[in-house]
């Protein structure tokens, strides 16, 4: 079970390697894409500013340096959809990333791109992004048939479902799951909105909107409205946790959730191949702290530390148990 870290430039490589990253992923936003696709038309679900490798030369340099350290590097081409004005260019990018830059895998969400890339028989393996919303074993069989070698399960797949899926598909694909940072209130692959800076994420935008209730029955008492509104406020608190407690950190600089550290023992037992740390756009310091946290607990799992001890250690890392107890900071709620 490897620790997969986000990276945006060669400057971060040594730091992440030393911190314990065992695989890396990044996005590329080359000039030819940015020029032709302004505004919200992002190549890989992140703004080209501040979260991406910005040139082919930088990409080749990063891939070479990662290879020297024995770290597989994956590149994201994971927009949910590429229309006909984009798809041919993105397929050329896939080919160049694989054959010129030598990345080890492409992370893809669009089924059309997946099938097209598979038909090119590239050296890079094909990973299916969580944006493809792969929620069941039959979908994995379908995607494996198209050429996928790894599937990233969406955040919403529960521990029990992961156990079942890994048991049913271990001969077909590797399974990657989310380990730390950044939630999504929706099924990511079925959210049709933009995170464009002018409006931000829809889920957090909703927290600032006026909300009224339309009751379908006869009597809509004030007590009933208070009940609905209290639930809405709980939901807004949950969304706050999804954003890493309002994009904050502990006094020692450790990131908040969403977090799967308590579940790593279970995930290893299920046969999960890779633990994803989210945050290509994060600061180097946040990436460093995140990778260290996940690697620290993953090493205990590999050392066969008892499950209750691992859960206790995971909860103790941030020294703020009230957030763990809130129940909203976990990717996967774990039985003690």
């Amino acid at each position: 079970m490897k620790v997969l870290a986000p990276i945006r430039s060669l400057d971060e490589l040594e730091m992440l390697h030393t911190a314990g990253a065992q695989e890396l992923y990044c996005g590329l936003a080359p000039r030819e894409w940015v020029d032709e696709n302004p505004g919200p038309l992002w190549l890989h679900r992140r703004s080209p500013k501040g979260s991406s490798v910005e040139s082919w030369a930088d990409m080749r340099e990063l891939a070479d340096a990662a290879r020297l350290r024995g770290l597989p590097l994956f590149a994201t081409l994971n927009a949910p959809s590429y229309g006909p004005t984009q798809a041919p260019q993105v397929l050329r990018f896939a080919q160049r990333l694989s054959e010129e830059c030598g990345v080890d895998a492409l992370i893809i969400a669009d089924v059309n791109l997946l099938a097209q890339a598979a038909s090119l028989r590239l050296n890079a393996r094909l990973h299916v992004s969580s944006v493809a919303a792969t929620l069941n074993t039959e979908a994995i069989r379908f995607l494996a048939g198209l050429g996928a070698s790894r599937v990233i399960l969406p955040r919403s797949v529960t521990l029990a479902e992961i156990e079942h899926i890994t048991g049913q598909t271990k001969d077909l694909v590797e399974i990657e799951v989310f380990a730390l940072n950044d939630g999504c209130a929706f099924e990511e692959g079925f959210c049709s909105t933009t995170h464009h800076h002018s409006v931000g994420a829809f889920c957090t935008s909703l927290s600032g909107m006026k909300a009224d209730f339309a009751w379908s029955g006869k009597y809509f008492s004030s007590r009933r409205e208070r009940w609905l509104r209290a639930n809405l406020e709980d939901y807004r608190a949950w969304v706050w946790y999804l954003t890493g407690n309002g994009c904050s950190a502990t006094a020692k600089g450790l990131p908040y959730g969403p977090c799967a550290l308590c579940a790593l023992h279970d995930l290893a037992r299920f046969g999960v191949a890779s633990l994803k740390v989210v945050g290509r756009e994060s600061s180097p310091f946040r990436k460093l702290a995140s990778v260290r946290m996940v690697r620290h607990i993953a090493d205990q799992v590999h050392a066969r530390t008892a499950r209750p001890v691992i859960i206790g250690n995971a909860r103790a890392l941030r020294q703020e148990p009230e957030h763990c107890d809130a129940g909203y900071m976990c990717y996967y709620q774990t039985a003690p």
Partner: peptide, 12 residues
């Protein structure tokens, strides 16, 4: 039993 109607009053 119900639906929630959100109004984008905070639109830029």
């Amino acid at each position: 039993t119900h639906q929630v109607v959100f109004t984008y009053a905070n639109s830029p």
